[in-house]
Design a binder for these strands. Structure first.
Lengths: 209, 209
DNA sequence: CCATTACTGCGACAGCTGTTGCGTTAAGAT
DNA sequence: ATCTTAACGCAACAGCTGTCGCAGTAATGG
């Protein structure tokens, strides 16, 4: 994902004017997102606020999803690290609390990206990519839990466990639109941890191991 | 939800022409949805296909979300009944298979409604209402499981259990966009059932009971 | 049948979405 | 300093979103 600065096949020119335009546009995206939310985020408004012509934004970012993708990349949360609290339940709870925070805070970039993913192909791909990375990074939580003896030795599917632990948050806050419950992160995490301890996510009984 | 036929405060006129227009418009919605999917569903296209003026559609249904809401109401799935297979795990699996089917089938009304809910307030309210009804109806699954002795006697929160069982499907198919896995309904159901049996969804230890 | 008025058709309008062609500016290399 | 051309500005275009005022049609009650 290093396209945004240019879509041409020649030599890039990311310096000077280009960088300046990008900075102004991303600032405008943040401002519009804060003021109007993701439903009020429009390319026309961003371009006007940034003092840039509409076609420039369309050519470089293509659609609203592209703006959001570039924004999260500019934020550069590559240095994110999964929690390490000493227990599986604690790790999952901490993870869930981060997720709940990201969905409740306004403006919510996560929510904006999800909404955009329904209409923008690049937003959809960025979203799935972000999640794939997150879940891959979080597999170490499961490995550590196995090492501590919290989980059965048979291979437990880390991804399934992580999805089971985190999915209820999105379901409640995004689809069901229930008011955020401060206990939900802990409860969802505990339920998944209990199921995992009971071997609900073991694919086979230590077959290939 | 009996607004769509008219938004005026006088006496309604749902017969004759009005009913005819409604039928043609909803047929057009189904057709457009089948051909172009939810992202190609537009009021302009629906009106043109239905042979009705755009303003008529805007006035009666307000937005694309309104069209979808009226569509699911016309389908009238009020007579839906929760599954009854004889075991909690079987019930949840059957429920999940229905959900997976509704998300995988094309065109998916559920997916269209979810997408519309991000931009249409009435679509959002219809969606949350539908889910509230579904989960309320499914609470009997939990009661039956308690009666069979599959769950501890302490009051288990039926809604939390149902959300935990079903949420992974939406998470995988809608947000993560993974290919549908025929085993997922059963696995998610089994994990939730195991957690429930272990008492993960009991609020308190048989306090008020 | 007749009167009321709910509902529809029509035209116009402003705003956002994307796209295209053309001219201008300036980044980066020689 | 000069050249190439990436990136930007500008204007125009077609399509969809919503809204409004006005006129015409037809559903309903009497």
């Amino acid at each position: 994902m290093t396209d945004p600065p240019a879509l041409t096949q020649g030599r890039r020119r990311p310096g000077g004017r280009t960088a300046h335009v990008r900075a102004r546009v991303l600032d405008a995206v943040r401002a519009e997102l804060s003021e109007s939310g993701h439903e009020g985020l429009t390319i026309e408004g961003v371009a006007t606020r940034a003092g840039v012509h509409r076609t420039t934004v369309y050519r470089r970012w293509r659609d609203v999803g592209g703006l959001l993708v570039d924004l999260v990349e500019a934020a550069g949360e590559i240095d994110w690290q999964p929690p390490d609290t000493g227990s599986l339940r604690g790790d999952l709870t901490a993870l869930n609390e981060q997720i709940q925070e990201s969905l409740v805070v306004k403006p919510s970039f996560a929510l904006a990206l999800m909404a955009a993913a329904f209409h923008s192909e690049q937003a959809a791909r960025a979203q799935t990519g972000l999640w794939a990375d997150r879940y891959a990074q979080c597999e170490i939580l499961v490995e550590r839990a196995v090492g501590r003896g919290e989980l059965p030795a048979g291979h437990t599917d880390a991804r399934s466990l992580l999805v089971a632990a985190t999915a209820p948050l999105y379901h409640e806050l995004v689809l069901l639109r229930t008011d955020p419950d401060p206990r939900l992160p802990e409860r969802a995490a505990a339920a998944a941890a209990v199921a995992a301890a009971a071997g609900a996510f073991t694919t086979r009984r230590a077959e290939s191991g």
